[in-house]
């Protein structure tokens, strides 16, 4: 499928509303699914993507260590993201997967030469994506994946290779997301039994 632009939905703590509307989204970093960036739900699989974003905002409020919701009000924001030129990599296409696997193989080949070190755990998809972004103009990645969107799934630590949502991750949001397209889609309150 060819995309020119796509509507994405981002669920978060309602206290971030003013900052996002004023300054644009902030990039998440660290151990992420598809590399650093702003994560959006796009396209419907089981539920519309704004509902996926809402469910995400609700389940991620829960802190399993402290056993409390870290925020009680959430917000779902909508943004229009342009997918122009060579900045977009669609990992739901055969070509996108070929590209990813070419890079993975190239990294592994080079790691064979770096004989003094070897992988302790795994070469994460996220690290491969960061290398793709570092060496090319690619800044936006799309991939269908399985995300635990209910507290029941999270408590039971479900795992699946069959996707239930479609994710778009955007690096450098100031450049790649027009902040004038950001608007509030939904707001809500988190009940303690959510």
């Amino acid at each position: 499928m060819d995309y020119k632009k796509i509507i994405g939905y981002h669920g978060t703590d309602a206290k971030n509303e003013d900052s996002i509307l004023k300054n644009n989204f902030a990039e998440s970093s660290g151990k992420q699914w598809l590399g650093n960036g702003v994560y959006f739900f796009v396209e419907e699989i089981l539920n519309p993507p704004d509902i996926d974003a809402e469910n995400w905002a609700i389940v991620t409020s829960w802190n399993n260590d402290s056993k409390i919701n870290t925020y009680l009000n959430y917000i779902v924001l909508e943004a229009e993201i342009e997918l122009n030129g060579n900045i977009f990599l669609d990992l739901d296409t055969v070509e996108g997967l070929e590209i990813f696997n070419i890079v993975r193989s190239a990294i592994l080949e080079k790691l064979k030469i770096a004989k003094k070190k070897r992988l302790k755990n795994d070469l994460s998809d996220s690290a491969i994506i960061e290398e793709i972004k570092k060496q090319t103009k690619v800044k936006i990645i799309k991939k269908k994946m399985y995300v635990k969107l209910t507290s029941f799934e999270r408590k039971n630590k479900l795992f699946s290779r069959i996707p239930n949502v479609s994710i778009l991750v955007v690096s450098n949001p100031i450049e790649n997301i027009n902040k004038h397209t950001i608007k509030i889609k939904n707001k809500g309150e988190i009940k303690n039994d959510s």
Binding site: K31, I107, K116, K117, R118, L119, K120, D122, A127, E131
Partner: peptide, 15 residues
């Protein structure tokens, strides 16, 4: 490359 991957959370051990 090892340094870049380490910066992105990939862990290595001496071989």
């Amino acid at each position: 490359l090892v340094a870049e991957l380490e910066a992105n959370g990939v862990e290595f051990e001496e071989y």
